[in-house]
Structure formats: C-alpha cells, structure tokens
Design a protein around this nucleic acid. Sequence first.
RNA 1: GUCUCGGUAGCUCAGCUGGAUAGAGCAACGGCCUUCUAAGCCGUAGGUCUUGGGUUCGAAUCCCAACCGGGAUACCA
Length: 597
Amino acid sequence: MSIELIIRDQIVEAIEKCYQQQIDSSLIQLQNTRKEFEGDITLVVFPFVRMSKKSPELTAAEIGDYLQQNVTEVEKYNVVKGFLNLVIASEYWVSVLNSVGSTANYGITEPTDSSKLVMVEYSSPNTNKPLHLGHIRNNLLGFSLSEILKANGNKVVKTNIVNDRGIHICKSMYAWKMWGNGETPENTGIKGDHLVGNYYVKFDQEYKKEIATLIEHGQTKEDAEQNAPAMQGAREMLLKWEAKDPETIELWKMMNQWVYTGFDVTYKELGVDFDKIYYESETYLCGKDEVLRGLAEGVFYQKEDSSVWADLTAEGLDQKILLRSDGTSVYMTQDIGTAKERFQDYPIDKMVYVVGNEQNYHFQVLSILLDKLGFEFGKGLHHFSYGMVELPQGKMKSREGTVVDADDLVAGMVEVSRKTSEELGKLEGYTPEQAAETYKMIALGALKYFILKVDPKKSMLFNPEESIDFNGNTGPFIQYTYARIRSVLRKAADRGIAINQTIDSKLQIGKKELELIKAIAQFPVAVKEAGDNYSPALIANYIYELVKEFNQFYHEFPIIIEENADVRNLRLVIAENVGKTIKTGMKLLGIDVPERM
RNA sequence: GUCUCGGUAGCUCAGCUGGAUAGAGCAACGGCCUUCUAAGCCGUAGGUCUUGGGUUCGAAUCCCAACCGGGAUACCA
C-alpha cells in the first residue's frame, strides 16, 4: 500500500475522530510539497475548515497531530497557512528506493490473459506520395501510445490501414504512364515513394496547364477542370481499376509496390511497426455490402439519382453520403468495412484511431453509423485526435511542395547530430558503425522528443531553422544524461567499486538525494496518467523533470569520488535507478538511449 | 451561419479533475571545465495567463459573453 493511500485513510479517520464527520475521500487533496517548504506530502485543509469551525492553521495542526501519532511513516509536520506539510521518515524513502532496484520492469504493468485487447490504428498513408512531417507526428504518437497502453497492462495490436486505391492513386499512375518514360526506382535510384510522389506532383502541373489551355479556348473554369485530358484519363483509369482491367491492375500493383518498399525504409528509420496491415482495396467492398444491407434494412435511404445516404438529423448532425450516384464508395464506406473486418479478426475490447483532428466529424459520424448498423462496438470507438503540425508559413500541402519530407528531415537531423558529435569527440574508440548508430539515435531522439513532448491535442509549430535543437528541453539532453550516468557506473566498475543494491534504512539521506528518490517514485504515476489521458507528453515532461533534477545533483555532489562509502553507494544506486527509469520512460516514447555520446 | 479545438514571457511549450510567490527551454546578458561526460550547471532580465463579467475562503485552471486564430460542416481521402 502506498504511503499516499495510508494517509488518505487516516485523514478520513482523523476527521471522524476530531470533528465527528464522515467525509468522502474526494475531499482529500494531497499534493507533493513544494520545494520551498519542508515536507514531502501536503494536505490542503481548506475543505475541512467548515467541519472543524476553527481556523485553517488550527485545523491543520489537529489533523497533523493525529497523523503523526497514527501513521508511523509521518515523522513530523508543519503548517503554512492552510497547508499541512507532512514529513515522511527517510526509512520509507529508502524502502522505496530498494524496491525500485529490485523490480525488473519498474513502472511497467505486464499484461495478463485477462487484459483488455486494444487495437491502435495509426499511420494510414496514401500510396501516392511519400510521408511528411504530419505523418511523422501521427506515427510517433501511434507508436508511443501503443507502448504506453502496453505499459499499463493492456494487450495491444498495432494496425495500419493503407489507402491504396482511389482517384488520387490513379493520378500518379496516369502521370507515370503518360510522362514516365519507363522510370523505375531501380533505373533512377530514386526511393520508390518519392518517385511515385513526383508523378503525383507532375500530374497536378500538367493538369493545371491543360486547364489553362482549355480556358484560353473559351471553356469555363468548371468545364475545363472536368474536360482536361489528364483528369479524364485518371477517371478512366479508376473505372478500369474497378473493372479489374489486367493492364491497369498490373500498373497499380507495380507502383504501389514501389511505394511500400519506400515506406518500409521510412518506418524502419522511425522505428515504428505494425502487427497487422489492412488495405483499403480489400475492405471497401465489405463496406459497400454493409451500406447496402443498411439500405435494405431501412437504416439508410436512397435518392432518385440512386446515391445512398444516412439521415443523422436526429443526432444533431447532417445527412451523410455513403455511396455515390455511380455506386462507388466514399471514405466513410471504407471505414465501415474496415471496422467490421477488424472486429471479426480480433476480440477487440477497445478500438483507438490515431487520426488528425480535422477528422473529428468523420469519426463522430462513423461511430453513429456503425451503431445504426447494429455493431455494438460502434459507440465505443475512440478517436485519438491530435493537432496539426504547422510550418512558419502555414499549413503543409503536398501538391504545392510546402511539405517537410520525412526522409529529408531525418537525414538532415542525422547530419547535424554527426557534426555535433564529431566536434565533441566523445565517441573515440567507436567503430564507424557504432558511431553512425549513435548519431542516428541522437537525431531520432531529438525529433521524437520534440514532437512527443507537446500535448497531442494541440496543434504545434515546426520551424525547420529553429526546431532542430540538441540543447535544453530536448531528447539529446535526456540521452546525454543517460550516457553520463552510464559513464559514471562504468568508471565505478573500473575502480572496483561494487554496488550494494540494498540500502540500509537507517542511512541518513541528504536533501537532494531525497528529491531524486521522490522523483523516481513518481514514475509509475506518470505512466498511469499517460495511459489514462492517452498522452505521451506526460511521460516526456516527467522524464525531463527527473533528468533536470539529476543533473543538478550531479554538479553539486561527487558520486564515485565521494569518500564516505555508504554515501557513495547510495548515490551510485540512485544514479543507476535514475538511468533505469530514463531508459524505460524513453522506451515508451520509442526513443533509444546511448551508452556514450 | 452552425459545431468544435485553442489563445500563458520576444519565440516554442509546461501548468488546466480550482490551492501556496505562474514554470521550463530557446534567444539576450554574466559566471563555472588540472575531481565522476560543459549536448551540462548557476545567475540576471523577461508576465495585465486575450478581454470583460460570474462562482469561490481561493481562478491561468470552472461557468457565461466578446475578440482573435485553427479545423470541420451532404457525393476528396
């Protein structure tokens, strides 16, 4: 039982004894004592003043007396205004430290057979262009969220729905066919997803030229957009694709394969992966069937032009189209099919969609539609809605080339990392491979931490010139602290200092050491809150606080050169456990930590 | 128009289930490497928490309104 729970129970009793009142434990506000005051845990006593009918100070003193007498861990207390600061005996903190040291996966709750199965969908790329910074935020959030849910004792299936069909895919295909001259990733050396993306851009350029020409020849803008040969070609291609025209299918398969090969490289670089991949080309027909079933059952309705609709006015929403007048499916249709298949494939307890907040309406509607179709899981879908990444000049647009490409960004950061590392020269003795691995680890640490430390709900700004930082509240700062701890531990071993993991409970603990033990003790709380709130940012912020605390300690106090052997051992044990906690915490963010840097 | 999310230091962000004097990093300025890694540490300066009301012993935090910004809003995904 944690000290906090014990104190809560005793406060309830104290109120009953002193003021003859039964209180609800939600009235009990405990917080960590602010550093400028003496104490470890603070009770806010204002809510009890009404019961005691005494001043806040007197009330606090009475409760403090009771706790001091009845809770052995409460050594003493002091009162500042309406705040009761409790000083917890250092034996308790020693026992916490000892238990951290003896716990293999400190802070992590392993899943059991009866754990909930959570499916997390993330990434969900289109196969017509390479991944950009927006996708990076999605991928990092999805991966980290999965890790955090696992650490909270859930079973997690990571999934990806690949949007591999549709008019946008046909645009790239058409452009390649028209103007590609047989270019392939092999004969150009261009990464597959980039090559296909180039043709997506090419399509747009040619399309715009054609429109301009048609307008010169007297067509209206609307007509020109419809009649431009490029657009007609792409449409024709989509029809051929749906009709399973062999040549078109062949082209589609070839170009998609280029993209997948490219994506795999990017995913591997980012360190994200999936347990199960769904393809829209395989689920959209199922969605169509479901919509038609809904139509037959009277859940949906059909207009004269034979398009199919859902009426959501009773839910306070609009009408939503589910099948176009030509019978082809829309985004929503596919998501219905994909959802159904997933719940058939897995015993899912919770479905989480990691998708940008521009889709809030979409998922609200999806949930209602699935419910209307009789799927009991419909209401329980969770849209993990995150904010957009913006550039100083505004939103990113693939077609206009105002995107920060994922591969370029990572490569650029690795380059900065390499330069910095070489200047500092701390990797001497590493093989070129080891050094390269470390540069990459640091670069990705910087990128991932930069993105994950921000509250997922909020939109964030990425400034290419300023955001690539390796100092301050950054991933490399945390990685550096870890490497520093490892260095200390290596040196201790070199000097033949054996670390005794079990600290004597009577050992006097210094103030700064105590702060660190308390910080380590907060880790499981941070993991739980991150899980409850679906927020990797809470883990990032926690680690930053811990690391700052450690660096202050490091500068102020000697560790291996401390002469008192007991104190030296205590500091080594603390350093080791801080390192352990950093490593576990960063793992939840998908960030690795280096032994040296 | 309607719905929705946001507005905290020059910049990027914490803090938001109400609690003590609103915190970090970057940028600026000044210190600290012949003791364990200076990608670090310490210090100076920087705030009407958009504005106005309300609830409360207590509001950056909750409620209402206004202003500003992002997003969505029936056949793009």
